[in-house]
Write a protein that binds this DNA or RNA. Structure first.
Length: 875
DNA sequence: TACATGACGTA
DNA sequence: CGTACGTCATGTAC
């Protein structure tokens, strides 16, 4: 029985238990989507959480080995030498596990030159001396020597780490027939294969125990070796030194100097946000509530995330509301709830007051001036609310903060998509939710005013952790972009249903014809849209050579099919490719057509938090991936038309903005000169790389340097370059060398920028937008190299996104005085609907604003086109 | 019904 | 073994 008044100390050998979990759990079930293995971490934490729950320790430490080397290997080089190399997939998990434990408030200990078990022995001894209950959890049998009346060993069973066997002195006696303290004597005689410590041949546990009981101690056995008869006696006499060595090595040190005292091991409250962060990175979901539950003290206490409490809202009429905002000091939290795209209710809050009202014409009239004023407003996910207000006839200015945007800027990789997520992550509370299953819910959801109040609280927390540079990106770039995007979405773009449906009909017929021919070519019908069925046809029935592997078989993607076509001609391949092309186009067209509203326009939604680099994304429908490359696709773009009442479409795009940013960031003299010379970029680069006159750069040369230049921005390898250009790798390598011989500063910049990111943990755009890259330090090569390429690209793509956003909202603001309006943003291109008579002024605004959005060491070149539809307007 | 996968469109 | 996205159809798991 444990004495509950006494502190309970739990000490764990993190390394050995995680290692067991690593082998016990199938790695394929425990990997994140970008390839980080997590089976050891998961298994360990799962066991650890169960331990915390069952044993309720007051003090905890988890010890880790620092390396293979220790004082033991120095004394006996062969110690543990037969152990196979620790798999790299496991090594990488240890720092992450330590991070988890740290977030959970658990002390993590390591000590160079010692093994984790020595730390365990030291702590267990100290705890025992204090009269505490001590639990030692280790997968190393040597820790049996620590067992006493006050020290219990928890040892994983063969099945894995989830079952722990308890060893107290009585169990040890029953199992081994000696006192726990004598166990190392047995081990010394018998030897330990896993530690590469040979013992006395032919001596097993039975014999060892017999001798030890007979002589009373190991020393006595060794001294009396001469009296032992038989072969084993002879063996013992020949291996006395081995036994002595074994005993020296398996004695755990109980007086290792540690930087902590027992009191420091007291379980600290877990850091909810840190735990959520690291668990999100590891993609642990089910484990999260278990950790929170185990971290809370005894069973029936409050849940880990308490339901958040906000002041009761005061209902005001329009007049009182206007008076309230007139008196409000400082920033006001604003929430507009929506019903069918229209404002439904309005809730406002300051730090200590919450007011609200149903939306109506009276409220719109009374508060319109305040909404349109610079009075600072704090919101969360302002864009849909701004759109609803606009539909209700109210325009909003003075947006001082958007919590969702801020949360994204701080952690662009996190899936925080609602205020509720932020409240949970930052405040550790749960927003009250209405019980959706009941008509009259028992539990009330947060009211609009309360949501505003939470927005203020979350805002405070976000500002706290927001570096100055990120705050500037929010204020100077993201916030002004919000209203711009709202206006663009409301405007939509005119799309011709007639053009689309005609084309769709043609493509449908074409796809059907091709399908029939394809069936004829292989003698049966298959679903041409099913990679699975295609694999059967291609690789089993037709016996074509295998392509690149995928998770579920072999790829049937276009590039591979083209390769196949070269190697083994088969009419089916070409038909399949053409079928794919036709159905893909038809899909896009039909999707687009379905999105046309009653006024003939399509309204996309821009997701401002939709990328990790700072770009926008576009959904429902995605208007940022409308086909452009082929002749056929021009017909789709031609369906995007200038709307009624407008004169023409204007398209404006940045030419080679990413390469220009590279030139600016790297300061490469050659590249800077290329852009300042006015010469075609790829021609200029080609002439330098191949040492010919710009006029003599052949199309092949141009293609090569163009691929190289673009590849640079993505972290392209010689392998990838070779594949893309269909040249061999030696030639690709040479191309890279020749390129860098002329534009070496580019390579230097890219390398330095990744190294800097590795140091500080994040990349930064020209304007200070950050993107964290924890994996740059990962020992997992795949993970690390992926992170390196992404880190190389992030400042470039991100800076381009920053520049475009700045140009975009400035153009939008300038156009307020005109009828013309921005409709679409496609990363480096804008589509603008120009009102009659406004072309000249709009073109001037666009050229100026895009050209001056950033001061780089190279000019920002803007191409402008004009036409009645998007295809015509392209240049 | 929800989720993963492969394929493919854009910058 | 090239970055960043979203959508579709299919197939599987629930």
């Amino acid at each position: 029985m444990t004495d509950s008044a006494k502190p309970t100390l739990l000490v764990v050998d993190g390394h050995s238990l995680a290692y067991r979990a690593f082998f016990a759990l199938p790695v394929e079930n425990f990997s994140t989507k970008d390839g980080q293995h997590t089976n050891g971490i998961y298994g360990f934490l799962s066991m650890f959480v169960n331990l915390l729950k069952a044993e309720k320790p007051t003090h905890v430490a988890v010890a880790f080995d620092t390396s293979r080397e220790s004082f033991r290997t120095r004394e006996y080089a062969e110690y543990k030498a037969t152990r196979s190399e620790t798999p790299a997939e496991f090594k990488g998990q240890i720092p992450l596990l330590q991070e988890c434990l740290d977030a959970m408030g658990v002390t993590v200990l390591t000590k160079p030159d010692y093994e984790a078990d020595d730390i365990l022995a030291t702590l267990a001894t100290r705890g025992e001396n204090e009269g505490w209950n001590v639990l030692v959890c280790s997968g190393d049998r040597d820790t049996i020597q620590l067992v006493t009346d006050g020290v219990t060993l928890l040892y994983p069973s063969v099945q894995g780490v989830s079952q722990l066997k308890r060893y107290d002195p009585q169990t040890v006696r029953e199992r081994y027939g000696v006192e726990p303290a004598m166990y190392p004597d047995i081990a010394a005689l018998v030897g330990e294969t896993s530690d590469n410590l040979p013992g006395v041949p032919k001596v097993g546990e039975k014999t060892a125990v017999k001798w030890l009981t007979q002589f009373g101690s190991l020393d006595a056995v060794l001294e009396g070796a001469d009296t032992i008869k038989g072969v084993v006696g002879g063996n013992l006499r020949e291996h006395l030194d081995d036994v002595r060595r074994n005993r020296r090595l398996n004695r755990l040190l109980r007086d290792v100097e540690l930087p902590v005292g027992l009191d420091d091991l007291k379980i600290k409250p877990l850091d909810g946000q840190a735990v959520r962060d690291i668990f999100a990175r590891l993609e642990f979901r089910a484990l999260l509530p278990r950790v929170f539950e185990a971290a809370g003290a005894p069973a029936e206490e409050e849940p880990a995330a308490p339901i958040a409490q906000a002041p009761a809202p005061v209902q005001l009429d329009a007049e009182a509301l206007a008076a309230w905002v007139a008196n409000a000091q400082g920033e006001v939290g604003v929430t507009v709830t929506l019903l069918g795209g229209q404002p439904d209710r309005l809730g406002l809050a300051t730090a200590d007051e919450v007011v609200e009202a149903a939306w109506g014409d009276d409220v719109a009239t009374a508060l319109g001036p305040w909404f349109a004023s610079d009075a600072p407003k704090v919101m969360s996910d302002a864009k849909p609310q701004i759109k609803a207000l606009a539909r209700g006839g109210v325009s909003l200015a003075g947006l001082a903060f958007d919590a969702l945007l801020a949360g994204w800027l701080l952690r662009p990789s996190f899936p925080d998509k609602t205020l509720g997520h932020l409240v949970e992550r930052l405040l550790g509370e749960k927003l009250p939710e209405a019980d959706p299953s009941q008509l009259v819910p028992e539990t009330e959801g947060a009211t609009p005013g309360q949501l505003s109040w939470f927005t203020l609280r979350v805002t405070e927390a976000l500002r706290e952790e927001m570096p100055e540079s990120v705050a500037r990106v929010l204020t100077d770039i993201e916030l002004p972009t919000v209203a711009t995007l709202a206006a663009m979405e409301l405007a939509g773009v005119a799309v011709s249903h007639a053009k689309l449906s005609e084309f769709s009909g043609e493509l449908g017929a074409r796809a059907e014809t091709i399908a029939q021919e394809a069936y004829a070519a292989i003698g049966r019908e298959v679903n041409l849209g099913s990679p699975k069925q295609l694999q059967e046809v291609l690789f089993e029935e037709l016996q074509l050579p295998k392509t690149r592997k995928t998770k579920t078989g072999y790829t049937t993607d276009a590039a591979s099919l083209a390769d196949l076509q070269e190697k083994a001609h088969h009419p089916f391949l070409d038909l399949l490719l053409r079928h794919r092309e036709a159905t893909k186009l038809k899909q896009i067209i039909d999707g687009l057509d379905a999105a046309i509203d009653s006024t003939g326009r399509v309204h996309t939604t821009y997701v401002q938090t939709g990328s990790q680099t700072g770009r926008l994304s576009s959904t429902d429908p995605n208007l940022q991936n409308i086909p452009v490359r082929t002749e056929e696709s021009k017909r789709i773009r031609a369906a995007f038309e200038v709307g009624a009442g407008y004169e023409t479409l204007l398209t404006a795009d940045y030419s080679q903005i990413e390469m220009r940013i590279m030139a600016h960031l790297s300061g490469d003299p050659g590249l800077v000169e290329a852009f300042n010379s006015g010469e075609d970029l790829h021609r200029f680069v080609g002439s330098r790389v191949f040492g010919v006159d710009p006029a003599d750069v052949t199309p092949e040369m141009r293609t090569k340097v163009k691929a190289m230049s673009y590849g640079l921005v993505y972290g392209l390898s010689a392998f990838g370059l070779a594949k893309q250009l269909r040249i061999d790798q030696t030639e690709a390598k040479k191309l890279m060398l020749d390129y860098f011989a002329r534009f070496g500063a580019v390579r230097d910049y890219l390398r330095a920028s990744v190294e800097a990111a590795r140091e500080v943990g994040y990349t930064e755009t020209i304007f200070g937008r950050r993107r964290p890259f924890p994996d740059l330090k990962s020992p997992n090569r795949q993970l690390r190299e992926n992170a390196e390429r992404a880190a190389l690209n992030a400042p470039i793509q991100g800076s381009a996104a920053d520049i475009m956003k700045i140009a975009l909202f400035r153009i939008h603001e300038d156009l307020r005085a005109h009828e013309s309006r921005v409709l679409l943003q496609i990363h480096d291109e804008l589509v603008i609907e120009v009102a009659p008579g406004e072309w000249d002024v709009v073109e001037a605004i666009v050229r100026d604003r895009m050209g001056s959005a950033a001061e780089l060491s190279v000019p920002l070149d803007v191409q402008v086109g004009r036409g009645a539809d998007w295809n015509e307007a392209a240049h």
